[in-house]
Every structure is written in C-alpha cells, then in structure tokens.
C-alpha cells in the first residue's frame, strides 16, 4: 500500500461534491470536493506499490492543460486498471459539473 499526491493547475472551484465507486477488487472509490480556486489536488491511496508513474501519466492525460475545476480528490484504489480509473473519474467529474 502507498499514498501518492499530485497537483494540477485548475479553474474555479466545483460547486458540488461527488462519490463514486467502491474499494473492491479491481475497483476504486473516488471522492471529489470543491477545492481552492486554481488548484486540483489529488491524493491516492493504492494497494499497488510502485505505481506512481502510472497514476502521473493518467492524470496528466486527463488534467494537464485542460483547465479542470478546482477540486480536492481522494482516491482509494484496490488494483483498478487505468481504464477503470478513468471511467470512475469521468463519472465523478460529470456529477460535479455544472450543466
């Protein structure tokens, strides 16, 4: 198990919070809460050791230069594949996005 932190530039705070997923085999739990304007902070607790680079790439592809909403993101991962991680993050982001 390891704990990782990431930060990205962001826009205005999201107006809602959201929770999706479950800490079950091959799955993860994602909690999104409005953050401080300008920053997206992500904390990952994962059962898979040595996976920091994988998480960094995934987040960079999703968030770098994309002006995401300002959020504090908590991820509790139980061995999810990058595809599942991305799906859960997109689900959660959709829940907090202003329509």
């Amino acid at each position: 198990m390891e704990t990782l932190s990431f930060a990205f530039p962001a826009g205005l705070p999201a107006s809602r919070r959201a929770q999706v997923g479950c800490v079950g085999s091959g799955d993860l739990e994602v909690l999104l809460e409005p953050g401080q304007a300008g920053s997206l902070n992500i904390q990952v607790v994962t059962s898979v050791n040595g996976s920091a680079e994988r998480w960094r790439h995934l987040f960079e592809r999703m968030f770098a230069g994309a002006n995401p909403p300002a959020l504090n993101v908590d991820i509790h991962d139980f061995g999810a594949t990058p595809g599942v991680v991305r799906l859960r993050l997109e689900q959660a982001l959709e829940e907090v996005s202003d329509v």
Partner: peptide, 21 residues
C-alpha cells in the same frame, strides 16, 4: 456518516489494506 465524514477503519491501513471512506 456519509463517505465525506471519512470515518474509516482505524485498523486496516496499519495492516496495509486500503480503507473505504
């Protein structure tokens, strides 16, 4: 006591197990 209350297990992480919120 929803997930954002973050009342997690105080015992799992010491055993290397990821806790749920």
């Amino acid at each position: 006591l929803d997930p954002f209350a973050r009342v997690k297990s105080p015992w799992l992480e010491a055993q290397g197990i990821v806790a749920q919120a």
